[in-house]
Amino acid sequence: MTDVNPPTQTASPDRAALDVSTVADLCAEIEANVADVIVGHEEAIEHVVTAMLGRGHVLLDDVPGVGKTMLARSIATSVDCTFRRVQFTPDLLPADVTGVNVFNQQSREFEFQRGPVFGNIVLGDEINRAPPKTQSALLEAMEEEQVTVDGTTRDLPDPFTVIATQNAIEPNRTYDLPFAELDRFMKKLQLGYPEPEEEAEMLGRTVGHHPIEDLESVTDLETIVAARETVAQIRVEAPVREYATRLAGYTREHARIGVSPRGTIALLRAAQARAATDARDYVIPDDVQAEAPVVLPHRIRTTDHDRDGEAVVSNALERVSVE
């Protein structure tokens, strides 16, 4: 905490980390690139980018057709990495996600056929359409960053980010994600319908030739890994940690189930990433405040309405003292 320490002490012995301002530039670059495809939704784009840098996964929860998949694809494309997509359907099996051992007639050995989960960015589309067993296969991979098939454990690639979508309509044809598993998503985002002028612009861009097909990557895997390391080293001082604790405490007092410690960790990681996008090597309460509305609500159960979590979080932000 003294000025003897250089402000950006990011050097790590084993992994090369980037300078925090480089990370900020990188984020800006990705966001600008994605904005070529997605009209509006700047906040959502930023949230997805910061979730990726903060080693989290994102759940996009909205009605079909607002661009959830397009957003995920744009970000994956912007980074030069492996992008996989799984369309969850009621008959999808766990092995369809993780992969399966196949007997190779030529070599006369079982070979592991990697499932779609082995990608740097995995898009799980309409995840709530698959039965819980299949959902949990993906969620386990998210948590452990590894999959186990037939007794063999295999590491998933690094970085590994899941962007799942679910839609809120047709509730009788979906399997709601268990509450415990929802907790594993760092953020749950809603895109919402675009503004009229945004929609008009989007139509202008997409009618005919879709811009996603021309989208090029702006960064590579190594840069992302280094940026994630930088983000992990962003300073979170005691006042901020205490603030996060107070926020979590408030939700626990004012809801049936409040934010778990995992939720608090996720909140601070998200805040770290947001600080990095602002070229700051330390988290300020504003970062926490910016991330809390997307990081916390889906971890809160009040009575029966899922959306009540948002009200609890906004109350917490209004009431809980910053210092």
């Binding site: 000025d3 320490n5 402000p7 300073r235 001082e237 700051r280 090597d281 330390y282 309460p285």
Partner: peptide, 14 residues
Amino acid sequence: YERALYGGGVSRNE
């Protein structure tokens, strides 16, 4: 102030 409180601190001059 943010740097002093949340960051790596400020120098005497600052």
